[in-house]
């Protein structure tokens, strides 16, 4: 049984088509990347899969549950890292994890133990009792990553997971994602960073103009062909390489 199934999905925002006739199946245990430029429909797809918005047409299932009719049931099972969200301003990271644990019905001991281990893993132990509004964007992102994985879900949706993180933490997060997948879990990453998709994902769907225009496995690409080449083949990205951005003459 695939972890995620999407059939003929369509979503409009007023007159603007965000997703058009998208069909996709993601197998259990895949680290799947949704790659595309800004406005391609990646975040909208993720929001539909996690029951945060409803589509106009099509059918979706996450672990055999329809998020459009049972959004809370899906969110009980999966983990979500939304792109633009930060932890509540007037809660500390420790309190936010307590909140996540309370909402998910986790025992106090487990919450305390996982709070400590995530703070250690991502290096924010010193900030555990600082109000979130006073954390840097990078620290807030670390807290949101930890919250997404806090209940050790079988399926995780993460939107631009490495944004705002320093290179050391980026490496830690990448390693963690690969180990999490290796343990048999499914991860869906949305990103516009081709390098991140190429390095992390076992399979990549390229979205452009609200459609899925390519579905590739980076490890199976022909020698000399990179994911960037495939991406540029499918995306209208005419770049004049020879023209300098500024001249000092």
């Amino acid at each position: 049984m695939p972890a995620i199934e999407i059939e003929s999905l369509g979503k409009l925002y007023g007159d603007v088509t965000a997703i058009s006739d998208l069909s996709l199946s993601i197998a259990d245990g895949e680290l799947f990347g949704l790659l595309g430029p800004n406005g391609a429909g990646k975040t909208t797809t993720m929001e539909i899969l996690t029951g945060q918005i409803v589509p106009e047409s099509g059918r979706v299932a996450v672990l055999d549950v329809d998020p459009t009719t049972r959004p809370t049931a899906v969110r009980e099972t999966v983990g979500i890292l939304p792109e633009k969200e930060s932890p509540p301003s007037f809660m500390t990271p420790r309190e936010y994890f307590d909140f996540v644990g309370a909402v998910r019905g986790m025992p106090d001991e487990t919450v305390t133990e996982r709070t400590e281990s995530w703070a250690e893993r991502l290096g924010f132990r010193a900030k555990l009792d600082t109000l979130s509004s006073d954390l840097s964007r990078g620290q807030q992102q670390k807290v949101m990553i930890a919250a997404a994985f806090f209940h050790e879900p079988a399926v995780v949706f993460i939107d631009e997971p490495l944004a705002n993180l320093d290179p050391i933490v980026q490496e830690r997060v990448k390693r963690f994602l690969l180990s999490y997948q290796a343990a048999g879990n499914t991860i869906v990453v949305t990103t516009h960073d081709v390098d991140v998709a190429a390095e992390l994902c076992s399979r990549v769907g390229i979205m452009y103009g609200s459609d899925l225009v390519a579905d590739v496995r980076p490890s199976e690409l022909d020698a000399g062909v990179s994911l960037l080449d495939v991406f540029l083949d499918h995306v209208d990205a005419s770049v004049d390489d020879d023209k300098p951005l500024a001249s000092h003459e």
Binding site: Q52, P71, T72, R75, I80, K84, E85, V100, V103, R104
Partner: peptide, 11 residues
Amino acid sequence: DVDLYFAHPLA
């Protein structure tokens, strides 16, 4: 931040 509630299993 209303959207944040709906990143959790909260109806």
